[in-house]
Design a protein around this nucleic acid. Structure first.
Lengths: 243, 243
DNA sequence: ATAATAGTGTCTTTCAGACACTATTCC
DNA sequence: GGAATAGTGTCTGAAAGACACTATTAT
């Protein structure tokens, strides 16, 4: 039995609580991020600017933070269960003109193909943007440029020693496809032989017998053994630049 | 000029926003965490239980989240500028009986020696607890056992490939001391020769000419070149168990 | 001299990086 | 057969792990 909301309406002012989601994909040989355009009414902060999908936590609808993140993600993309990881939180007096606010940021990895983008009632506009260009000329609302940079750094650094890029592909995928995904995210070529040895040794892929049709020679198709957790490799990719 | 708090008192209820700090040290050959005992009045949640130091964000005093974390840390320990890193955030309808709440968690590494613990007005009691025992028999308030576990996991995993343990020692320290700290946190012995090669190759230590007095043979003393950022090693410690 | 700790040298094994090679398909 | 892509084999150099050794102090 729930008591009559004791403690609601506290004797001190509360910060706003929001959740934002950095949704990555690989499209057109580039790492891209999903952004939404803010409404163009002057009552809203940063009208017309592009921003990360997100918004206020709804204490009636959202049981917890990750549920809220999943809701935001579902509202923009029709993705079932993507890879979703907490990135961190940003909170300060000045980041939102409406007052002290704190946002909890998640980052998601989704496969671009077969992905439906919802252009729903509220979402004025939704589109993919190349991460590199966004980082060079940051024109995002709030502190979202900073958040995007942190997300890209986290992703790129984890790609050095985890299987995260596999979540950017739809299953089944081939090893050459996976290698290309690594190369796109890392921004540098990777040796084929070493790459294959590593991937297969990590034992996180399951053969799907399938053969790819879009190439000269068919390749083995693979699925992830565990669609929830990425695998951590014992070593970093190429200690190139370790010096 | 500040306008008359526009947007304050929004048309929807807000979650509570808190900050908690997981403060680690190495004491008595064990990794320990600082806990505070909650007031024993039945009006407060979890009366008498031990909890992580933390509390509500004060939008008047705290400019941002990390400033709030530093304030919480300063209120319990008289530490100047310890290593402080964001761990993550936990938020849900049920984690606090007073209502929907989200906490932003930081973790701090401090040197135990010369550390003053403030037993201030408000803080009923403050004490160090061994992390391993706390994880075995979790009796913490709120979801703090879960948070402590996440913090310990993060620390232990980062210790495999970073210089974090150096922040658990007061300067200057010797390489044998640093090695012992690694061994305590990792819970396993580390080879001396390899350890020294690694530490010196990483080039994050500066000789302090000093000699330690408490041992048979004096050892070289070192300080950190950069007291803010830890160093990342190119490889993980011992791929023991990588299989 | 001996014990205890600090610090170094060396051998071996492992593995990433590089690159050449074979295999299978389409044209 | 040739081009293009998938997949394998092999050599080499660098570095981690293991462990024996030397060095410097206190007693």
């Amino acid at each position: 039995m729930v008591s009559k909301a004791p403690g609601r309406m506290p004797p001190f002012p509360l910060p706003f609580t929001t959740v934002d989601v950095v949704i990555f994909t690989v499209l057109d040989d580039a790492l891209q991020v999903l952004l939404v355009q803010r409404p163009d009414t002057p009552k809203e902060p940063h009208p017309g600017k592009w921003a990360l999908p997100g918004g206020f936590v709804d204490i009636d609808r959202d049981a917890d933070l990750i549920a809220c993140a999943r809701r935001k993600l579902r509202e923009k993309t029709a993705v079932e269960s993507p890879y979703l990881e907490q990135l961190g939180s940003w909170g300060s007096r000045s980041r939102d003109p409406r007052g002290w606010s704190a946002t909890h940021v998640y980052f998601a990895l989704v496969a671009a193909d077969h992905l439906v983008i919802e252009k729903g009632a509220n979402a004025a506009d939704v589109a993919w943007f190349k991460v590199d260009e966004m980082l060079k000329r940051p024109r995002l609302a709030f502190d979202h440029a900073q958040i995007l940079q942190a997300a890209a750094e986290r992703l790129r650094s984890k790609v050095e020693y985890t299987s995260l890029p596999a979540f950017l592909l739809s299953e089944p995928f081939t090893l050459p496809q996976l290698q290309r995904t690594y190369e796109i995210v890392l921004g540098r070529p990777v040796d084929k032989s070493g790459f294959r040895t590593r991937m297969l040794a990590a034992d996180f892929l399951v053969e799907d017998g399938y053969a790819d049709g879009s190439s000269k020679r068919p390749a083995m198709g693979y699925r992830l053994r565990d669609r929830q957790e990425p695998v951590t490799f014992p070593r970093t990719f190429s200690p190139r630049g370790a010096e």
